[in-house]
Computed example of a mutant assay.
Amino acid sequence: MKKYGIIGGTFDPIHFAHLYIADEAKASLGLDKIIFMPNGNPPHKSLKKVSEASIRYEMVSEGIKDFEGFTVSDYEIKKNGLSFTYETLQAFKQEDVELFFITGADCLMDLEKWKNIKEIFKVSNFVVFSRPGFTYETLKEQKEYIEKKYKTNIIFLNLKDLDISSTDIRERIRLGRNVKFFLPNSVLDIIKREKLYK
């Protein structure tokens, strides 16, 4: 049985915290592969301006190229309509593959707003990593509540706080500030070439 991790996100842009989370999850859970899944048309981002999907896909491709077992999928980008997690997981479910859906603490807190979460638990192992702004006690309480209500088990990864966000990177670029220490140079080259976030 192969074990694949899926990390979804806007990745606008991908940065070192994304790569650290993926690498830690791969090592901790013994995953054969991590699939980065840039959102195509996520329902929760519909009011925000998001960079063109093909550019975000290219940034992820460049950002992960030095990591063994990291791949990127354009499944959600090519899919028509809104991108729902349960549909993506259903599409990637195979007889010989155990799926691990990896997401942040903020998503655990908002999980009951997601569509068809029972199906998410049915087809994958739900993995949550810690993020700045959430105490362990708060996350533990929410984790236990969700586990009890949906009769599932959530895997919790207590990671180092790398307080890097795509939002902050975009703002720094807008202000003309340096961002070299937040993301790979190959990703920064694409941002400069496309004149993103100005």
Rank of each mutant, 00 (worst) to 15 (best):
I102W: 09
S83F: 04
E62T: 01
L99I: 03
W114L: 02
K49S: 13
M109V: 09
F70D: 11
T71I: 07
K65M: 15
W114M: 03
K113I: 01
K93V: 02
Q90V: 11
V60F: 05
E98T: 09
M109K: 06
D106I: 00
T85V: 15
T85P: 02
M59W: 12
S51Y: 02
E98N: 15
I64S: 05
K79E: 06
S61W: 01
Q94L: 09
E68R: 07
T85M: 06
L99F: 06
S61H: 09
W114G: 03
G40Y: 00
I102L: 12
T71M: 06
K65W: 08
M109W: 09
L108H: 11
D74H: 04
M109G: 08
E76M: 03
G63S: 08
E87N: 12
E62K: 08
F70A: 09
V50M: 04
S51G: 08
M59P: 13
V72T: 13
F92P: 12
C107I: 15
N39V: 03
I102H: 10
D110H: 07
L47A: 07
K45C: 14
I64L: 13
T103Y: 08
P43W: 01
A105L: 03
H44I: 03
E62H: 12
M109P: 13
E95M: 02
E95P: 07
C107L: 11
L47F: 14
G104E: 15
E112L: 00
S61K: 15
D106V: 00
L111P: 03
D96N: 08
K48P: 13
D96W: 07
K65D: 14
F84M: 01
S73E: 09
H44P: 05
K93G: 09
E98F: 04
I64P: 15
T85E: 01
L89G: 11
P38F: 00
K65S: 13
G63R: 05
Y57E: 13
S73T: 08
G40A: 02
V72F: 09
V50C: 10
K78S: 06
E112I: 00
L111F: 12
P42S: 03
D66C: 04
P38D: 07
A91N: 12
M37Y: 13
A53K: 06
P42T: 00
Y75Q: 10
D74K: 04
I77A: 10
V60K: 05
K48V: 14
T71W: 11
D74Y: 04
T103R: 03
S61E: 15
D106H: 05
I77L: 05
